[in-house]
Design a protein around this nucleic acid. Sequence first.
RNA 1: UCAGCAAGAUGAGUGAUUGCUCUUUUUAGAGAGGAAAGUCCGAACACCAACGUCCCGAAAGGGGGUUAAAAAAAUAGCGGCUAACGGCCGUCCACAGCAAUGUGCGAGGUGCGAACAGAAACGGCUCUGACCGAAAGGUCGGGCAUUCCUUCACCGGAAUAUUUCUGCAGUAAUGCAGGGCUGAAACGGCUAAAUCCUUAUUGGGCGCAAGAACAAAGCAGAAGAUCGGGUUAAAUACAUCUCGAAAUUCUGUUAAAAGUAGUUCGCUUGAUCCUAACAGUAAUGUUACGGACAGACAGAUAAUCACCUAAUACAGAAUUCGGCUUAUAGUCUUGCUGAGACA
RNA 2: GCCCCCAUAUUUCAAUGGAUAGAAUUUAGGCUUCCGAAGCCUGCGAUGCUGGUUCGAAUCCAGCUGGGGGCA
Length: 115
Amino acid sequence: MLPKINRIRKKKDFEIIFKNSKCLRNSLFILRIAKNSLNLTRFGFVVSLKVSKKATVRNKIKRRLSEAAKMYQGEIKNGADIVFIALPEMTRRNFLEIKEAVGAALAELKIALKK
RNA sequence: UCAGCAAGAUGAGUGAUUGCUCUUUUUAGAGAGGAAAGUCCGAACACCAACGUCCCGAAAGGGGGUUAAAAAAAUAGCGGCUAACGGCCGUCCACAGCAAUGUGCGAGGUGCGAACAGAAACGGCUCUGACCGAAAGGUCGGGCAUUCCUUCACCGGAAUAUUUCUGCAGUAAUGCAGGGCUGAAACGGCUAAAUCCUUAUUGGGCGCAAGAACAAAGCAGAAGAUCGGGUUAAAUACAUCUCGAAAUUCUGUUAAAAGUAGUUCGCUUGAUCCUAACAGUAAUGUUACGGACAGACAGAUAAUCACCUAAUACAGAAUUCGGCUUAUAGUCUUGCUGAGACA
RNA sequence: GCCCCCAUAUUUCAAUGGAUAGAAUUUAGGCUUCCGAAGCCUGCGAUGCUGGUUCGAAUCCAGCUGGGGGCA
């Protein structure tokens, strides 16, 4: 799990990010990214009831996404809020596949941000 | 020994590395369940309301207490347990089963629904009184009241006075056995609801997003990353036009009230669990220099490896407890049934 | 998290516990027309699932499943 400071924790923050953020989508999840005024990278994870009815499954997806995000944390420039919205396809994938997908998505974003 | 059925228990452990939450702060310590689930019941606690209610006060008001009545709804042999319950335990009876055991169709009444068929499942039928008629039948009424027994109560039973036949048992209610008849259906007719009525008991509303404390941002102007729409040949390669939303930054000016954003409390040591002793058939209760005990708030309790093993299921605490219901791999225990073998 | 509601043809709605679950709409075929539309006729098509009560359940009772709403 990521420490508390690196998580997005307030409802207002989520609202701001959803209002003005860039969007990226693949088969596993939707990714939204926005700049923040802090000198930190923060992550948020959304797993709705539509993904799975079981709380254990939802928790597992959150933990896996969190772990994947943690591995790439160092490569991202500080000052970004990133939100992952999980899709139902998530339930059928293992950790390695999720990790690869997260890596690919973040790499694509890094190029976009540099320019 | 194998197979099956029923009931119950358990729901892994140790070490290392990395990471998270809380408490301590140098260290270290603690960290999901038997169902945490469904939200089907019952309580605690909190606020609100009302009063057949009490205390303080001159009053304003404050602090307790209760939920009487009515309505919705629930329960129902008898006795016990519990804070309470629609729950649990014991027991009687009835039913099911070879049995272990399970079920509760267990308060009282009405007898609705009933086309066809039928003597009969209620605009009917039977019994009975009066009148009309030769008869078949028709018309108008009655099926009450009293006494005794029984029940917490409502009710019910018996006699005056009656609901298929025979036999046996019984004071009786009724039970058992056999016969006859009816129909699609009856352990029926002698039955019977979860529908309707009555009685007794329970029963105010609302749920921790309850509720409490502290308490910012203000207003005007300017710039504006970025996002969305429009225009357009193209607006998701970049630059550029226009409208709207905007994190953030700068400047000026900011009295009170308020209780918003937010923060903190509520929040976890309690009708708690384990162990032992005693009381009790049991549910359960009492006692102990005894032991154990997650507390988050976009929400922690995880990942990897090794050893070990039968360890592969269902599944994630959210104010807290007591139940019920549903999901559940593997292992273990007890009882029963069937088959085979041996004595 | 706490508290509630709903489920009937493709869709929108009906239906005292009682005969084959009804109407509009959709859809298929036919009639009508030179061809369409409209109209007329005929057909297909449903009680979310599993049990229980009952002689009989869309309806009553219990448990699941799937949708939807309110409360900061």
